[in-house]
Amino acid sequence: MVSDAKIHSFEEVANHNKIKDCWLIISGKVYDVTPFMDDHPGGGEVLLSATAKDATNDFEDIGHSDDARDMMEKYYIGEIDSTTVPNKRTYIPPQQTPYNPNAKASQFLIKILQFLLPLFILGFAVTFRHYTKTE
């Protein structure tokens, strides 16, 4: 690696997120892995999924061999300006309504009542008319 390595901003690296133009950030270093897209054992899509973020955890979680780590050297193009990398965001799950087993039963009952109530009223009206009819 060159001692006067080019410093890249996160935004610049994040823009290289296509199959024909793919850069990754791994351990503070920037790699142009575009030539390796077709040869990557996991496929190019795996590399694409690691773009526009710090891919260090993705890379380390796989358990790459020493040979794979040595191979990275030929794709090295510089360092990342760490001040431009966004802070990691804490995952906040979507708010969910607490489970209420009666909710579905209530919805079902309302639908049945919406169907039966007009029939009940009609039946009552017919019966009322029948018994109140004057001859």
Rank of each mutant, 00 (worst) to 15 (best):
I121G: 02
T132W: 08
L47A: 07
T34R: 03
D4W: 05
K88Y: 10
P41F: 07
W23F: 06
V33F: 03
Q95L: 15
G123K: 06
L109Q: 11
Q95R: 15
R69F: 00
N87C: 05
M1A: 14
G42D: 10
Y75C: 03
M37W: 01
R69I: 11
Q114I: 10
F120A: 15
P35W: 05
M37S: 02
L48E: 08
P35R: 12
A105W: 09
M71N: 13
V2Y: 08
V30F: 01
E11Q: 15
V2H: 10
D70Y: 08
T97M: 11
G42P: 04
A105Q: 14
A52K: 10
Y31N: 01
H40E: 00
M71A: 15
K20S: 14
Y131H: 12
T56S: 15
K133R: 07
H64W: 05
H130P: 00
N17T: 03
K29A: 06
S82D: 12
I19D: 08
S9P: 03
N17W: 04
F36S: 08
T132Q: 06
A52M: 09
Q95M: 12
A103W: 02
V30G: 02
F36N: 06
D58V: 15
Y99I: 12
E45Q: 14
N100G: 02
N15M: 14
F59R: 03
N15G: 13
Q114H: 04
P118D: 01
G63Y: 04
P98C: 10
E73C: 09
D67C: 00
G28Y: 12
I77K: 13
H40T: 01
R69M: 13
E45M: 12
I62N: 07
K29V: 00
Y76N: 09
D39A: 11
E11Y: 07
A68D: 13
P86E: 11
H40G: 02
G28N: 09
F59Q: 06
P41D: 02
I121F: 02
D21Y: 09
S27F: 04
I7T: 03
K104W: 10
N87K: 15
C22L: 01
A50I: 05
A125K: 05
Y99E: 10
F124P: 01
P101I: 05
M72A: 14
S9A: 07
E73T: 13
V30C: 02
A68S: 14
K53W: 01
A14P: 00
A125Q: 09
T127A: 12
V46P: 00
M72D: 07
V126H: 02
D4K: 09
I7R: 08
W23S: 01
H16A: 13
P86L: 10
I25M: 04
D21L: 01
D54W: 01
K20C: 05
K133M: 03
K20P: 00
F120W: 06
T51Q: 13
T51G: 08
L119A: 09
H40A: 05
K133Y: 04
S3H: 09
K53A: 06
P101D: 03
D38W: 00
E45V: 12
